[in-house]
């Protein structure tokens, strides 16, 4: 087991008699190489939860284990944890600060105390992983387009060679092509064995890639299931301010109209097959 989250809680007012929990008794575990989506609307506690995994926040109660070790324990090497568990915050391009893209991506490896050649080698590898054009390595990160800035920032995390990559709303504010690019990068990384945890409120993004979905609402983990199971419960999703992909609603509509279709379908590709099957084509 790579990561184990055991009954964690988080509250901003621990002294209060009935504290309000931002994270409320959440438990789950992550196996190596998984592709997990964490969804929930703003304020559901998902952003707090992922900070536990990186040791940036300590849970008020409960524990987080990384390879069996409690990350909140005294003397635990947080620096190594943060390198092994890469956390890409929302709008990561706002963390760029160096004069060139390459130098910026080197920042992580530099903090790990690696020699200069190794820093650059890792930076270049990371940049190629996110398909960042080599011609722009020496450009100022502030002169890049939105999508490229985002990819450079993600490379900044990848250069530390994390085992787990957590991305908080990595597609926010990008155009359809930019969104697709980032999601493809995530899938490629996952194919190479990196565990990916994708935090999102876009069901369409999640449906296509994730094999397991965690749904948060008001600090509680209310689903931990494969996508077909979660999306077929679209009524519940709507109650908590989320929705299933449009395709799921099509299948639901067809079912109601008397077609014998499966309703646990959530991508365009699968829906097409299913509808064609019913129509006998």
């Amino acid at each position: 087991m790579q990561i184990e989250v055991k009954d964690v809680c988080y509250t901003y007012t621990p002294e209060a008699e009935q504290p309000k929990f931002a994270v409320d008794h959440v438990s789950f575990s992550v196996e190596e190489g998984e592709f997990i989506a964490l969804i929930g609307h703003t304020g559901s506690g998902k952003s707090t939860l992922i900070q536990f995994l990186d040791g940036l926040l300590k849970p008020t109660s409960g524990e987080v284990l990384f390879h069996g070790e409690n990350v909140a324990a005294k003397g635990y090497d947080l620096k190594t944890l943060r390198q092994k568990v890469g956390l890409v915050f929302q709008y990561p391009e706002y963390q760029l600060f160096e004069t060139t893209v390459l130098k910026d991506v080197c920042y992580g490896p530099k903090n790990m105390g690696l020699p200069k050649e190794e820093q650059e080698a890792r930076a270049k590898e990371a940049l190629s992983l996110v398909r960042f054009p080599e011609a722009s390595y020496e450009k100022s990160p502030f002169d890049l387009s939105g999508g490229r800035k985002r990819r450079a920032a993600i490379a900044g995390i990848l250069a530390m060679k994390p085992e787990v990559l957590i991305l908080d709303e990595p597609t926010a504010g990008l155009d359809p092509e930019g969104r697709e690019d980032i999601l493809n990068v995530c899938r490629n990384l996952n194919d190479q064995g990196i565990t990916v945890i994708l935090v999102s409120h876009s069901m369409e993004d999640v449906a296509e890639y994730a094999k397991r979905i965690l749904v948060m609402n008001q600090g509680k983990l209310i689903y931990d299931a494969p996508p077909e199971k979660v999306f077929s419960d679209w009524r519940k999703l709507e109650e908590i301010g989320l929705s299933a992909p449009e395709v799921t609603y099509v299948m639901e509509g067809l079912r109601k109209a008397g077609f014998d279709v499966r309703t646990d379908v959530f991508t365009v590709e699968k829906a097409k097959e299913e509808i064609l099957r019913v129509f006998g084509k």
């Binding site: 359809p176 449009e246 395709v247 365009v268 509808i275």
Partner: peptide, 11 residues
């Protein structure tokens, strides 16, 4: 134009 249509339209 680097865009797509909504999912239903594409389906």
């Amino acid at each position: 134009c680097h865009l797509t249509a909504p999912e239903v339209t594409r389906l």
